[in-house]
Design a protein around this nucleic acid. Structure first.
Length: 878
DNA sequence: ACTGGCACGC
DNA sequence: GACGTACGTGCCAGTG
């Protein structure tokens, strides 16, 4: 058996753990969060790697040989916070309890120690695994040397083998140094070549292999600016290379004999855990000997390509993966279908599956349980083919999102790497990307799709378990999963569009835009591209010499805010503003919508993304029907083009009135706010009365406007800066408004304070229905990051609970419409409103049903109020 | 193909 | 006291 040596970058892991975890302290008031994180990581490694040798390397002292090369090395870096530095001795204590050696070497960093030892190990034919949070270490990757980098948090790692590194970075391990030399590293104050980021560096290295190669062929490098930059910063680049190169010949004076790992004494470890207050880890020690996790990385899988679907293929507990390249499932082709169950792994070609009555019968049988990835997509895609999928009980896509909405790699290979520690190829590797995308040979395709289904099958129990642990299973089973079915129906049904109306409006706009454009050119004295902020900026601020109000990264700002401030300086302003407004309508809403009208039925089929937002809201794409204009009359007319799909039908809208503030009243339990809603007061007027300490009759429209902005700020979690911007007042004044608001509603103040504390302690906040949002930055020492996390902590339960409520209402409404045998159809959800279409003769009943369902979706300490309206177009439903 | 500026909704 | 400051989607210009 080959020996396996695990080398841990102690400093890096501790830093990661410190910043990833809330600042916990034990009962003695000693901070332990970093040690805790380090320990969980350590336990995981011991279980999984079963190392024969182990060492934790630390950085020594303040200066290293690198400072001789470059005195600015690691300059500008913030001092290690004392809350962290005091944890270093604890970790060393921990290591000695585990009987793991640690080591540091004067003048060298942990990297160098690890580099040197991994080289020694190589010559002794040992396998090496390096654990760090520092991407620099990737340069050590080679055959038999794997580097595991911490991802989010600490126990989540991504293991780089040479092939994985190449696939992920686009370069070979030996080119990592060159890449770093080009890119630089602000956190270590390594200069690199300015203007060269990851993309450019990779491109250059793919072409010229090494830094030296690039400079030898500098003449051929494309891009004038790039060439200049490279030339100017040649010295920096080479010095950077020297700095980032890990030394593999340091005078390390330990041998592998010294770092043999033979296990630890449970008693000692348990004692220390108790002392540190790591109660939750105690059982991990006792269970130590019993756990056996097999690792099957890139193991071949056995699958059958089915050419005749038979009933005994299915078990009633099957994972099904429907593969489709185009993420626009309304138009994409189904590439094939994989089924995995306890009997085996199967692949069925699309036409065989769809042509099979047995397949169809199974798919439509509610009793046959199915585990999916993205049920909505699958349901819609199959519905197009006349198959009505039923019996979905698990959706890996939705559940992964529920477990952590911040995770944005929700594709199956990524999920598998995170949760299952098994690798499978990414879609890009199988299908290619962009113009080069193509469908592979049947056996390759089958293998890929089956792997996905297999992962769904394998992870179903584990993920369900995690949901239950978090008390989130109900959120999945009772809310998100049934909702996905309803959303699928809405998408499939679509919204009817009056194309002629859009075309007509487009014609009109075209003329007005042309006229406006000419007027602007006349006033400017020349023609230019009015759609280019850059060119407009030059005209306004260079040619016309108007005062510069605000700059952007790349030049002058020409935003509406700026142009409005210049209104009285020049008559050109209103024309530009109007041009912008109309241009937006033309390009996004007229042309944009026309482009996505389904030729077959004149309907638009948006898609709702149910697994994207951090708060639990939905989003809508292709097109986005959640941002159709309403504020300005001109834009609002776009809504005239959204019409019922049948004659004598109407568009019906039901919208929650002030749902977020009502939710706030409920969660905060603020008596005054609750009373205001119980008495059905105008909430902005009420807020104005309290903030300005006046009677109802004395509230001026301006006071109400300001109060409204404050409420807006509360709902969306904006800062004093944000409020000052929206009201055009100073930050101080904005801050004062917020203070006065909180004085007026003490229950709200208490909530805001409590929720931040709770977030600090738990690391996350939750909504009414137990949706979570993790807030790692809540303990950050960076004021901005921390403030942002604090506002998020206050806001997410409000916005997220409102999202929960309307989702619940949608499920209830769909059921009710069905139960009552009504014809009305849900069309859209726009965060606090539901849009339906219905026959005229159903309006009275629909009104009762919608109001009843929406107002009673949940019971809060305040009533939920719903307004409704209807008319021949969406425009009229106001 | 990617980034930045801008603008629309909640 | 400053680092940038609700969440989304999509359009255009500009660059490579």
């Amino acid at each position: 058996m080959t020996d396996k040596v695990v080398l841990i970058d102690g400093n890096s892991i501790l830093y990661r753990a410190f910043f990833a975890l809330p600042l916990l302290n034990n009962d003695k008031g000693v901070y332990t969060n970093a040690v805790y994180g380090f320990t969980t990581m350590l336990l995981k490694i011991l279980e999984e790697e079963k190392p024969s040798h182990m060492l934790v390397a630390f950085d020594a002292g303040k200066t290293t040989f690198r400072h001789k090369t470059y005195t600015e090395y690691k300059g500008g870096r913030q001092k290690t916070p004392s809350e962290l530095s005091e944890q270093f001795p604890l970790v060393k204590e921990l290591l000695s309890a585990f009987q793991i050696k640690h080591y540091e070497l004067d003048q060298y960093e942990a990297d160098d120690i690890i580099g040197t030892l991994s080289k020694h190990a190589k010559s002794e034919d040992m396998k090496v695994k390096v654990i760090s949070g520092d991407r620099d270490l990737l340069q050590l990757v080679q055959k038999d040397v794997e580097v595991a980098l911490t991802k989010k948090g600490i126990s989540n790692v991504e293991t780089y083998t040479p092939s994985f590194l190449e696939e992920k970075l686009g370069i070979r391990p030996d080119q990592v140094i060159d890449m770093k030399a080009l890119m630089g590293d602000p956190s270590d104050n390594i200069p690199g070549v300015p203007g060269v980021g990851e993309k450019t560096a990779v491109k250059l290295l793919q072409q010229y292999e090494t830094l030296e190669g690039i400079y030898e062929n500098l003449e051929q490098v494309s891009g004038k600016k790039l060439k200049e930059k490279l030339e100017q910063h040649k010295e920096d680049a080479f010095m950077s290379k020297e700095l980032v190169t890990i030394q593999t010949a340091t005078p390390v004076d330990i041998s592998f004999k010294d770092i043999t790992y033979t296990g630890y004494e449970s008693r000692k470890v348990l004692e220390l855990f108790k002392e540190l207050g790591f109660h939750s880890l105690l059982n991990r020690i006792e269970g130590e000997s019993g756990t056996e996790e097999q690792q099957e990385i890139f193991e071949d899988i056995k699958l059958t390509i089915v050419d005749n679907v038979t009933a005994d293929l299915f078990t009633g507990k099957d994972a099904i993966m429907l593969e489709m390249l185009d993420d626009h499932y309304f138009y994409g082709n189904i590439l094939g279908i994989a089924i995995v169950n306890e009997k085996g792994k199967f692949f069925i070609e699309t036409n065989i599956a769809l042509g099979s009555e047995i397949f169809k019968k199974w798919a439509e049988d509610e009793q046959q349980e199915k585990y999916l990835y993205d049920a909505k997509k699958t349901i819609v895609a199959l519905k197009r083919q006349g198959v009505h999928l039923k019996g979905v009980v698990f959706d890996l896509f939705l559940t992964t999102y529920i477990l952590n909405p911040a995770e944005n790699n929700l594709d199956i290979p990524s999920i598998s790497r995170r949760l299952n520690e098994k690798s499978m190829p990414y879609d890009e590797e199988i299908y290619g990307k962009g113009a080069k995308q193509k469908i592979p040979e049947l056996d390759v395709l089958a293998d890929h799709v089956v792997r996905k289904a297999d992962i769904i099958y394998q992870l179903k129990d584990k993920v369900t378990e995690q949901l239950k642990e978090n008390d989130q299973y109900e959120l999945f089973e009772k809310l998100e999963l049934p909702l996905s079915e309803i959303l699928g129906e809405m998408e499939y049904y679509g919204v009817k569009v009056d194309k002629d109306r859009l075309l007509h409006m487009g014609e009109e706009l075209k003329d007005r835009l042309k006229t406006l454009e000419n007027e602007v050119f006349a006033l400017a004295g020349e023609e230019f591209n009015l759609n280019s902020p850059k060119q407009l900026g030059q005209i306004l601020f260079e040619k016309m010499n108007l005062p510069v109000i605000k700059k952007t990264k790349t030049g002058y700002s020409t935003s509406a805010e700026v142009l409005e401030q210049l209104q009285d300086k020049h008559e050109i302003m209103p024309k530009i503003l109007l041009y912008r407004q109309l241009g937006k309508l033309q390009s996004t809403y007229i042309e944009g919508l026309l482009k996505v009208v389904d030729e077959k039925n004149n309907r638009i089929h948006t898609r709702f993304n149910q697994a994207l937002t951090q708060t639990g809201r939905l989003s809508s794409t292709d097109p986005n029907l959640q941002n159709i204009p309403i504020r300005l009359e001109e834009g609002r007319k776009i809504r005239q083009a959204f019409v019922p799909s049948k004659e004598d039908w109407v568009i019906f809208a039901g919208d929650y009135s002030q749902i977020e503030l009502r939710v706030l009243a409920h969660i905060a339990g603020d008596e005054k706010l609750i009373e205001a809603f119980n008495e059905d007061m105008d909430i902005h007027t009420k807020t104005a009365m309290d903030v300005f300490k006046v009677e109802a009759e004395e509230v001026t429209s301006n006071m109400r406007r300001q109060a409204k902005a404050v409420n807006f700020g509360i709902v969306y979690g904006i800062s004093d800066y944000g409020l000052s911007q929206s009201l055009g007042i100073t930050r101080k004044e904005a801050k004062m408004f917020i203070e006065r608001y909180l004085d007026s509603f003490p229950g709200v103040r208490a909530y805001m304070e409590d929720i931040v504390q709770e977030a600090k302690q738990k690391g996350y906040v939750t909504t009414l229905m137990n949706r979570r949002r993790y807030l790692p930055d809540i303990t950050s020492r960076n004021f901005n990051l921390r403030s942002f996390a604090e506002r998020t902590a206050m806001n997410t339960p409000i916005q997220g609970s409102a999202a929960d409520i309307i989702k619940k209402a949608m499920i209830d409404l769909a059921k009710r419409l069905d139960d009552e045998g009504m014809e009305a159809e849900l069309l859209l959800q726009v965060h606090d409103e539901l849009i339906l279409e219905a026959p005229k003769n159903e309006i009275d009943k629909l009104k009762d049903v919608v109001l009843d369902v929406m107002e009673n979706a949940v019971e809060l300490a305040v009533p939920l109020k719903v307004d409704f309206s209807y008319g021949p177009t969406w425009f009229d439903a106001k």
